[in-house]
Design a protein around this nucleic acid. Structure first.
Lengths: 100, 100
DNA sequence: TGTTAGTACCTTGCGATACAAGGTATTGTA
DNA sequence: TACAATACCTTGTATCGCAAGGTACTAACA
C-alpha cells in the first residue's frame, strides 16, 4: 500500500536537510518505512532529471564521496502539491472509514 | 500517489455494504477518489480470486443484472491488516512532517 | 605494493498496479 | 427490429518497487 508514498516521504525528508542515499534509507527506516537501494537510486535520478532535486558531492571521512541531494525550488513547489494530495487522501480515507 | 490506496478504499466501502462496480465508482468519486472501470474490474476479480470478496447477482429495475460484491471473513481480516498498514503510514508521514 | 573489507553509486530484469481503449452481453424503448 | 443505456470484461502500455548483480573509490593491513 505504501506504493507511491515513497516519493513524498523522500521529499519530506529533503525539505529538512540535504541527504545522501544511505542517510535517506536510514532515516526512513527510523520512521518505519523500508526502502531498498534498487528502488531509491532510480527514484533520485528521476527526480533529479525532472528538476525537482539537485545534488552536490561531499567528501566523507570514511569512504568515497557522497551525493547529497537537495530540493530545488521546483521540488519545493512539487512538494507543496504532494502535501495537498496527501491531505486529500486523508480526507478520502476518513470519509470512507467514518461513513455510516 | 493514491496508487495502492485503491484496494484499501474499496474494501472500506464494502465493509459498510455490498456494492456493484458503478456503485463503487460513484461512491469513491463522492469521497474524492477517481477510479476507472479498467482498473476496478480486474481488481475486483483479483480480490474475488484471492478469497477476500464474494459476490451475488441481483436484478436491476433498469438494465442487466449486477454483481454485488461483499467482504468475506478472510476479506475482513485482510482489511484489519490494511487498517494497521494505514495507521503505520500515517505515523511515518507525521514523523517526517513534524521532525525538527 | 597488492589484497581485502567497507562504503557508495548505479543498472537490469521481473512482477504488480493503474489507466486508456476497445469489446461483449443484457435490458428496455421507440 | 433497431438502437441506446447499462453492466461486465480484456488487452496493451506505462510506472513503481524489489531482488540481484555490478562498478568504483577508500582505508587498513599483510
Amino acid at each position: 500500500m505504501r506504493k507511491g508514498m515513497l516519493e513524498y516521504c523522500i521529499m519530506l525528508l529533503l525539505r529538512r536537510q540535504p541527504c545522501y542515499a544511505n542517510d535517506i534509507i536510514q532515516r526512513l527506516h527510523e520512521a518505519q518505512m523500508i526502502v531498498m537501494e534498487g528502488t531509491l537510486y532510480p527514484l533520485l535520478s528521476r527526480l533529479k532529471r525532472d528538476g525537482l532535486l539537485g545534488y552536490e558531492w561531499r567528501e566523507s571521512t570514511q569512504g568515497p564521496p557522497r551525493k547529497y541531494y537537495v530540493l530545488t525550488d521546483d521540488g519545493q513547489q512539487a512538494l507543496d502539491q504532494l502535501d495537498a494530495s496527501w491531505e486529500e487522501i486523508l480526507r478520502t480515507v476518513n470519509i470512507l472509514k467514518i461513513k455510516e
